[in-house]
Every structure is written in structure tokens, then in C-alpha cells.
């Protein structure tokens, strides 16, 4: 039943220069309490007449899908699974504002149609004429993990050879104001971010394979610290990886108590210093982690990883002690 799952292609739009090449030596700083994505020239990937009605999140979702597929040598897809917590914020705001401003008259259908959380997954299917399995998860900080678990189930069921999975969230000016008022965003304390990372997962490796997804787990309101640690240990055991084999922990957390007790000798990288805090930030971590395992040195340097040739990377994120996410990546030859 259990199977190896390989990352055969990926693409990452983030606040760093990660789209056209791996992250370089120059690290972009946040602007105040926010990180904003460095976006590509969308006209390279999306027809002009389609582009006109797409908000940023849809553009980012489609451009990364296009590039990840290309990177994986364009396999035929058996499933498209999206993870997004905030969804299509811009179009939601636009439609809501017109309802209020125009007192429920003269509304624009385009904004409503594009406001639904499944817009990106639906548009990928539409543009690639793909009738396959199509799903969108909207579970806050474990939206991307939900998508990964769904993909794993499809592989276990022999329902898929290649699956597109993404984690996407967009910031808007209005959302920024709300996040500041809620004290989620605070310059110097917590920088909010955004991003779109897309992966082509497969049950077979190719010469382009980045890494193996060796385990995924998510926890909801765990009892205590021990429950989280047990869950991390369990994820490792299932993959037959001893605790001491973890070379790097990409952590989404500020205080590293839970992870440091388990992995005292691992290298630590607080990846959110590069992409900011947002619900699907673990997708950014998985993209850069996979690049490191494939031997990408600039990305390794940018993350501040010193270990020479990491073989196993754990991604761990704890959101307000409500949602915990655990993703385990392994080098393919390992």
C-alpha cells in the first residue's frame, strides 16, 4: 500500500527570486510588516485575452502550474489538488465592495465567478483540458498538507501516476490592513507573506527528481508537546528514518523547543524570514527543501544550512497550537 512519492517538477513564486532560477545570494527584505511576491511576466505563460480577468492568485497559480509541468517534462496529470486558506481574496473583496457600494446593483459577474476557492484548480483543469480528479482544500494553515495527504491516498489507490499539488495564498492591500488591525502583521515582530508553490508528484522517479516526500502528517489541537513529538517520531518511523538522520529542520516557528529536543544536532532554518507568514508557507518550505536535496547550493546558502550534503529534511510548522504540520523530505539516492 505505501509507496514512494517523488517530486519530479516544481515551481515557486515567492517574495524571493525563486521563479526563473533557484534562490540567489541576494535576499529581498520585507517592506514593513509585509513580504510581496516577485512575479514573473505572465504573458509568457497565459494568453492575453485570458489574463485580463485573472487576479494575482490565479495568475500565480497558473504560471507555477505551467512551469512545474514543464520542469517535470509535461507528464499527463491524473489529479490536480490545490491548497489555499485565504482563497481568491482580491476578487472576493471586489465583489463585496460593489455589493455594498452599489447597494446590490450593477455587480460584476467576473469577480464573483473568480472569487470561489476552487478557481485556481478549476482554471488549471480548463487550460490543460484535463477531466481528472480535481480538489481544493481550504483548511487554514494545513491546506497544503491536506492536499498532500489527498495526493498520497490517490497514489496508494493506484489512481494516479502524476499529480499536481500546489499551495497558494495572496495578500491584498485590504487584507494587509485587516492583518495589521488584528495584530497578525507587525513590522519587526511578524511579517506576513504570500506565495505560490507548485509540485508535480509522481510514483516513479525521473532524472529530474528533486526528492522523495517520505511522510506527511497534520495534527489538530494536540493534547500537549509530547503528542506532537510522538507524531513527528511516528512519521519518521513509518519512513524508516531514525531521529538522528534528520540533517535539517525547516521550521516555521519562532521558538524551537519541540523540534530542538528531538533533533539536537540538526541544522535549523527559519524559512519564514524569506517568505513571511502565510497559511500555505509550508509549500514554499517544501520547494526550497526539495531544491536543497537535489544539491542546489545557492538555495542551501540562502537558507543558512551548513551541513554538507543533507539527506533528510523535516518541515515543521505549528500554528497557534491549533494546527501542526509535519512534512518529511528525503534525498532520492538516500
Amino acid at each position: 500500500m505505501k509507496k514512494n512519492i517523488y517530486i519530479n517538477g516544481l515551481s515557486n513564486i515567492s517574495p524571493q527570486e525563486t521563479f526563473y532560477q533557484p534562490m540567489g545570494a541576494t535576499i529581498a527584505p520585507p517592506q514593513g510588516a509585509f513580504f510581496t511576491c516577485q512575479e514573473p511576466n505572465y504573458k509568457e505563460f497565459i494568453q492575453k485575452k485570458l489574463l485580463r480577468r485573472m487576479s494575482r492568485i490565479v495568475r500565480m497559480g497558473l504560471a507555477t502550474a505551467h512551469k512545474a509541468l514543464d520542469d517535470a517534462n509535461n507528464p499527463s496529470l491524473d489529479a490536480i489538488i490545490s491548497g489555499t486558506a485565504w482563497g481568491c481574496v482580491k476578487d472576493t473583496e471586489k465583489f463585496l465592495e460593489t455589493i455594498i457600494e452599489n447597494k446590490e446593483a450593477y455587480l460584476t459577474p467576473t469577480a464573483f465567478v473568480q472569487s470561489t476557492h476552487n478557481t485556481v484548480a478549476g482554471q488549471i483543469a480548463l487550460l490543460h483540458h484535463n477531466n481528472c480528479y480535481n480538489m481544493s482544500y481550504v483548511q487554514g494553515n494545513v491546506s497544503f498538507e491536506s492536499a498532500l495527504i489527498d495526493a498520497m491516498l490517490l497514489f496508494y489507490d493506484n489512481k494516479a501516476n502524476n499529480i499536481l499539488v500546489n499551495g497558494i495564498d495572496e495578500q491584498t492591500e485590504k487584507l494587509g490592513i485587516l492583518l495589521e488591525r488584528l495584530e497578525c502583521a507587525k513590522a519587526g515582530v511578524r511579517v506576513m507573506g504570500e506565495g505560490a508553490a507548485c509540485f508535480i508528484l509522481s510514483d516513479q522517479p525521473t532524472p529530474n527528481t528533486y526528492a522523495k516526500v517520505a511522510g506527511v502528517n497534520m495534527l489538530y489541537r494536540p493534547k500537549d508537546k509530547t503528542a506532537v513529538q510522538q507524531s513527528i517520531q511516528h512519521t519518521l518511523q513509518e519512513a524508516n528514518i531514525p531521529l538522528e538522520a534528520i540533517d535539517v529542520v525547516l521550521t516555521g516557528n519562532k521558538t524551537l523547543a519541540i523540534e530542538k529536543e528531538l533533533f539536537p544536532t540538526a541544522d535549523y532554518s527559519q524559512y519564514k524570514t524569506l517568505c513571511g507568514e502565510y497559511p500555505t508557507s509550508t509549500a514554499f518550505a517544501m520547494a526550497v527543501g526539495a531544491q536543497v536535496l537535489k544539491g542546489d547550493l545557492p538555495t542551501k546558502t540562502a537558507l543558512g544550512i551548513h551541513k554538507k550534503a543533507p539527506k533528510h529534511i523535516l518541515i515543521y510548522n505549528n500554528h497557534q497550537d491549533i494546527n501542526h504540520s509535519i512534512i518529511l523530505l528525503s534525498k532520492v539516492s538516500a
Partner: peptide, 12 residues
């Protein structure tokens, strides 16, 4: 969907 937009335009 554009047709619906044009309907809104004529109304507005």
C-alpha cells in the same frame, strides 16, 4: 461571462 458583463453595462 463577458455577455453578462455587457448586460450589467447596459443596465448601469
Amino acid at each position: 461571462i463577458d455577455a453578462l458583463e455587457l448586460i450589467v453595462l447596459l443596465d448601469k
